[in-house]
């Protein structure tokens, strides 16, 4: 009996010590983790806009995030856009509810600061204050709008779609005419050497410069990638080409479809179709949102 008590106490004690060690490490690292994640995301975004270490982003570049929610009230579904607005010195958010046909329904002021808006629990709390049960809401996606001076410079769309193995997470950059500025693969689990090549410049840069109309019709072709085109696509990596050559190659391949990766046609198709879907859905929604913003005179920040 005495033995049993001794075993139990020592086991409990070691569990407690282990728990304290893990807990304190968790508390110490959690903040750094979130901070690094944020830095990582903003680096990806700035990279897509063409800014890096050698070419830092200008001071007047500002990024605003619009969060989209699906709101259910019984069987009726509406869309709720959390839009950054210019109120007060720091700015805030407004929830604009739009029905499925694209008509304005309602708008609310949200009690949330731009810093807190990046945290899902904070957003949930702010939305809970205006959307009372039985209304339910689920997060759908977010869009980042880059603004320079008083003009919109680009839209950044994070998204995910099923690839060959699991989901492929991407960040797509579009200019105000919905022409693709760039594509970045943020997360994937495709096979290295095969589908994993989607993250290489010579694949993802093929999407650059495709106009909205062209993107809608984009196909994947199973042809070997021409050498000059590959050089052009990788030219950002230090292998500089002559200016004249770049323009000639760009003009030649601008209207081409996407060349599939060797041995990874399914991954190539998944990315192409995913980008097509994202672009068309976004363009449709943005037009509706913009027209509502204009008619309701919402003082948006972007």
């Amino acid at each position: 009996m005495k033995e049993l008590i001794r075993i139990t106490t020592s086991l409990t004690l070691s569990c407690l010590i282990a728990g304290v060690v893990m807990g304190s490490v968790f508390i110490l690292t959690d903040k750094a983790k979130r901070h690094n994640k944020q830095i990582n995301i903003s680096q990806t975004m700035l990279g897509l806009l063409g800014y890096d270490k050698d070419n830092p982003s200008p001071a007047d570049l500002e990024l605003y995030t619009v969060y989209r929610y699906i709101i259910e009230d019984g069987a009726v579904k509406t869309l709720g856009y959390m839009i950054p607005v210019e109120t007060g010195a720091k700015g805030g958010f407004e929830l604009v509810i739009i029905d499925l046909a694209g008509q304005f329904v309602n708008r609310f002021n949200l009690n949330i600061t731009p810093e807190n808006a990046a945290e899902p629990p904070e957003r949930k709390a702010a939305l809970n204050a205006v959307l009372k049960p039985p209304k339910r809401f689920t997060y759908a996606d977010s869009t980042i709008i880059a603004k320079r001076g008083d003009k919109r410079m680009a839209y950044l769309l994070p998204g995910a779609f099923p690839g060959f193995k699991t989901f492929i997470h991407v960040m797509l950059a579009l200019d105000p005419d919905f022409t693709i500025i760039g594509l970045d693969i943020t997360e994937h689990e495709e096979d290295p050497g095969l589908g994993g090549e989607i993250q290489e410049d010579y694949f993802k840069n093929q999407f650059k410069g495709k106009s909205f109309e062209r993107t809608r019709e984009l196909l994947v072709i199973k042809e070997p990638l021409p050498k000059e085109y590959k050089q052009y696509l990788e030219s950002g990596k230090g292998k500089e080409l002559l200016k004249g050559v770049i323009d000639a190659v760009r003009a030649k391949y601008e209207y081409k479809d996407i060349y599939a990766l060797t041995g990874a046609t399914i991954s190539s198709k998944a990315v192409t179709n995913g980008v097509k879907e994202m672009t068309s859905k976004f363009a449709y929604r943005l037009n509706i949102m913009d027209s509502v913003i204009e008619r309701q005179h919402i003082p948006v920040a972007f």
Binding site: I7, S10, S14, A18, V25, T29, K33, N40
Partner: peptide
């Protein structure tokens, strides 16, 4: 009598620590 559970607990603790540290500082 609780030798093996203690080993497992020790290893699991240190694995959790390194897992949290790597996730925080070397996310890529």
């Amino acid at each position: 009598r609780i030798r093996i559970p203690t080993y497992t607990l020790t290893i699991a603790t240190w694995v959790t620590v390194i897992d949290l540290i790597l996730a925080a500082y070397l996310p890529d």
